[in-house]
C-alpha cells in the first residue's frame, strides 16, 4: 500500500519538500454518507498545504484522520513512518505529540485562564518548572501577537483572539506539523487578513509543515505553497498556487470564479 517510500522515514529524516503525510486511497463514511471516496494526497514537509472545497466535503475529516480521531474504512494515512489507522496507542500518541492543531473556535478550556490553557500540554507532558512554563507561555503569546493576556478568561476573548490563543497552545510543545481548521471562518475581513499574515509569519519563523483547511480563497492564495481541492469526496485538483490558478478543471474553475468575483483580491489575476 505504501508506495511513498519517504513517508516511512522519521519526520526529521525527510528532506524538505518530500511528503511527511500521505493519504493513500482513503475512504470514510458516516452511516450511508460516503464522505471521502478514495483520496490520495501528499503533504510536503516544511511547506504550507491548503485543502479547499465547499463545506461538507470532508476537509475536517481529513484532519481528524491525520491525528487518529477518526478511522477510515479503507486506505492508509501515513504520518512520518506511522500508518495512523493501524498504529498501536503508543505510536499514535507519539504522532499526536508531534502535531499541533488550531481549532475552528479555539477549543479553549472554559475553566482555565488563557495562560493555563497554553501551559496545559507542557504541564501534562513535561517536567518543566513553573517559571519556565511561565516564560514559554509569555513567549508563545508574543509569537501570536497577544502579549500580556495570560490572565484573561477565554470567554472574554473575541473569535480571532481565541483562534490565536489556540495557535499559541498548539505551538508551545514545538510540534513538527501544525494544522489549522478553518482559520478564517467566522471572522470579519480585517481580522481574517491578520490571521493570514500571522500564518505566513509563523511559517517563516518556525519553518515547519503547515496544513490549512479552508474555504476562503483569498486566504488560501496568501499562505499556500500547495493547494488541494476536494469535491464530493474526490480530489479534483492539486498543485502549486500557480498551477491551480491556471488549471482547466471545471469544478475548480467554478469554485474559484465564485470567490474571485470579489473586487479586492490581490494577485488574483492570472
Amino acid at each position: 500500500m505504501a508506495d511513498s517510500p519517504s513517508a516511512q522515514r522519521p519526520f526529521d529524516a525527510i528532506p524538505d519538500g518530500d511528503p511527511v503525510i500521505s493519504f493513500r486511497d482513503v475512504h470514510k463514511s458516516f452511516g450511508d454518507k460516503h464522505i471521502l471516496r478514495g483520496i490520495s494526497l501528499d503533504f510536503p514537509r516544511g511547506r504550507t498545504t491548503v485543502v479547499i472545497g465547499p463545506s461538507g466535503t470532508g476537509k475536517s475529516v481529513c484532519m481528524k484522520l491525520i491525528v487518529g480521531l477518526l478511522v477510515p474504512e479503507k486506505g492508509d494515512v501515513w504520518v512520518g513512518g506511522t500508518n495512523v489507522p493501524d498504529a498501536p496507542e503508543k505510536d499514535l500518541m507519539s504522532v499526536r505529540r508531534r502535531i499541533g492543531m488550531m481549532f475552528q473556535d479555539g477549543a479553549l478550556f472554559d475553566s482555565m485562564s488563557v495562560g493555563d490553557n497554553i501551559a496545559f500540554p507542557l504541564r501534562r507532558h513535561t517536567k518543566l518548572r513553573e517559571a519556565e512554563i511561565h516564560d514559554a507561555v509569555d513567549h508563545a503569546l508574543e509569537q501570536v501577537g497577544l502579549p500580556g493576556i495570560a490572565d484573561r478568561a477565554p470567554s472574554a476573548l473575541s473569535g480571532g483572539m481565541r483562534k490565536r490563543v489556540s495557535l499559541a497552545r498548539a505551538i508551545i510543545t514545538k510540534p513538527e506539523i501544525v494544522m489549522f481548521d478553518e482559520p478564517n471562518s467566522g471572522l470579519d475581513p480585517l481580522t481574517s487578513d491578520e490571521i493570514d499574515s500571522l500564518i505566513s509569519r509563523m511559517k517563516e519563523e518556525l519553518g515547519i509543515t503547515f496544513i490549512v483547511i479552508s474555504h476562503d480563497i483569498v486566504g488560501t492564495f496568501a499562505v499556500a505553497d500547495k493547494i488541494a481541492m476536494l469535491y464530493n469526496g474526490h480530489l479534483v485538483a492539486s498543485g502549486s498556487p500557480d498551477e491551480i490558478l491556471h488549471s482547466e478543471e471545471p469544478i475548480l474553475r467554478r469554485f474559484l470564479a465564485r470567490n474571485m468575483d470579489l473586487p479586492a483580491l490581490p494577485g488574483a489575476k492570472p
Binding site: 475553566s111 482555565m112 485562564s113 493555563d116 490572565d151 484573561r152 470567554s155
Partner: peptide
C-alpha cells in the same frame, strides 16, 4: 463553567 484549580488570575504564580 467549572472553576477549580485552574483559577483565573494569578493561578500560575504558585500559591
Amino acid at each position: 463553567m467549572g472553576g477549580g484549580v485552574y483559577q483565573r488570575g494569578k493561578a500560575q504564580q504558585a500559591p
